[in-house]
Nucleic acid binder design. Structure first.
Lengths: 332, 332
DNA sequence: TTGTAAGCGTTATCAT
DNA sequence: ATGATAACGCTTACAA
């Protein structure tokens, strides 16, 4: 293995000078800099990032924690993060939690041990996740909460404007004459779960439609549960005429249940749903979908993170991304 | 930050003893071991993996290089790798190359700098990728080639049995009376590209069907190119009556082209294709697909890697995974 | 502008 | 069974 020492010898300078050249310090004469650069090339020197990390007490890796690597929503986010990271010569430590707080906590500790320069986390539980993340903050490692906020923590946060999205979707249904509108929402302990239900409720309230608890179904975002709630709603004595489904994976199950019952997602039950997934678009090409800017969510989160690394002081920011309602697909 | 030193002080022992306890060395008295364990818990000590990595000259991270993080095929592989890695207390450095050898080479150097314990790579080019990977091997870092072999390199390799899969698929068409069978294959510089074309050719030869160069279309696996080749095949004076498409993403484009021309992928042109992707299943639910064991590919690659870390000596192995032909879907 | 040397937190060698 | 100490490769005061 080639080290700074070898480069220093060949260039006839000290290791300190080599380091200065490598890290672009200004106070090096052009002539020595050139000699060092030549030696680096000649030896094929590659810096040992581990040694550097130990010395400066932070690595050039950023931790990324997501609940589901198989879910395209999060993968697209990761793609956005990666582009920013690589531009800063940083690398991604990717952690998949399956929404298990325990697995998440384990990963946080591993990442801390790796001396990550920063953490981007799509938390599995606003409150529970705060516990390990607080340890990260105590180590002065910058954190960005992504898609899901963290309770009682002063961190930069990147979210979708869930309330507005949900309100808009609900009003879309109201404008088409629906009064009995159901919602399959996510859990209260996750930002998108809670806020999307709020948006739904706000829309009804704004139009003087009373809330009917039987129409509000709270799940933990798991598809199987969505299926059950869809059944329950459809089996109601007076089933809803409109339905808002609050995540892409859940939407697929709802569409399946409708198919089994030979119900059309537009005529028999006016459906509006979050997220553009291939499968839901396939099952029904033309119902309105709430589009999130997934790549941009990741990209922005990463940019906030790198800004934060430069300046620890400024107050934490929250960025909200607007959504769009897309009525038709162009699948085929 | 809590260090071994702090633990040592509290337990009234030396750092050496703490390290011994932490790493499960046998020659420590039960009594001192207990004291150390208590001190660790009391202080909430977490080992600094960076310092450890520098000292032992290898980290507990494994590098994973894939061409396309948005492609479910590779994501499923990563999932398989992750489960094995976490079971060994290792973490994943995930690198997405977009099939650019330059980007890949850059990542390899970064990973080397991180002192990875091993590398699993789905190469962007059998020959070109060998160049940076050879540097990895020279550093005595174990490598597993996954889905795509590496030229002139003695490394453990995990592949799909592409030739058999392709032969089987082609024979499926022959058995149904087709004589003019087209193939949209991948590039020769990638194992699945080359081998799948070979399987196709073997099947034709075995049945005395002469090769028609006009029916053999070699792409670089990009969907847009697949679309063009599909058009060219369909526009032939005597178009094929059967078609083998050698990747999931390409299949989607072929199906789209068929749709535009109002051709049925089963009646008008007997289609067989690699990979079960949601979208292709949506566009046509019932044509035969060649199924690969993606999760198992990743899982096995990771297991080979960890075995290799334990034993550098034994000869490199190549594992081939069989495929299955699935004729119907259960999407809805 | 450049060099010397300390030290980051571990592990492992060599004593005891 | 345990302790003292060197070393891993780098960066950064501090000195010159």
């Amino acid at each position: 293995m080639v080290t700074v020492k070898d480069v220093a010898s060949l260039a006839g300078v000290s290791t300190a000078t080599v380091s200065r050249v490598l890290n672009g310090y200004p106070n090096v004469s052009d002539e020595t800099a050139a000699r060092v650069t030549r030696a680096v090339a000649q030896l094929g020197y590659r810096p040992n990032r581990v040694a550097r990390s130990l010395r400066v007490q932070t690595s050039q890796a950023i931790g990324v924690i997501i609940p589901d690597i198989q879910n395209n929503f999060f993968v697209s986010i990761v793609r956005g993060i990666e582009d920013v990271a690589i531009a800063h010569n940083h690398i991604l430590l990717l952690c998949n939690t399956d929404d298990h707080p325990a697995r998440e906590e384990n990963y946080v500790d591993l990442l801390l041990g790796e001396g990550i320069a920063g953490l981007i986390i799509c938390a599995s539980d606003e409150k529970q996740s705060s516990v390990p993340v607080r340890r990260v903050i105590e180590q002065a490692v910058p954190v960005v909460a992504l898609d899901r906020a963290l309770s009682d923590l002063e961190v930069d946060t990147v979210l979708t404007d869930n309330v507005a999205a949900s309100r808009e979707a609900t009003e879309y249904l109201i404008a088409r004459g629906h009064q009995r509108i159901g919602v399959i929402a996510g859990p209260d302990y996750l930002t998108p779960g809670r806020e999307r239900r709020q948006g739904y409720e706000q829309a009804l309230a704004a139009h003087g439609i009373p809330l009917d608890p039987a129409l509000i179904r709270v799940t933990d975002f798991r598809p199987s549960q969505a299926r059950e709630e869809a059944r329950a709603l459809l089996d109601l004595p007076k089933p809803p005429t409109g339905l808002l489904v609050c995540s892409g994976l859940m939407t697929v199950e709802v569409l399946r249940e409708l198919k089994v019952r030979h119900l059309d997602p537009m005529r028999d039950l006016a459906l509006v749903a979050f997220d553009d997934t291939v499968l839901s678009r396939c099952l029904c090409p033309d119902f309105p979908l709430i589009m999130q800017s997934t790549y941009e969510l990741g990209h922005t989160a990463a940019e906030l993170l790198f800004e934060r690394m430069r300046d620890t002081e400024k107050p934490a920011r929250t960025v909200r991304f607007e959504t769009g309602l897309m009525e038709r697909s162009e699948l085929a």
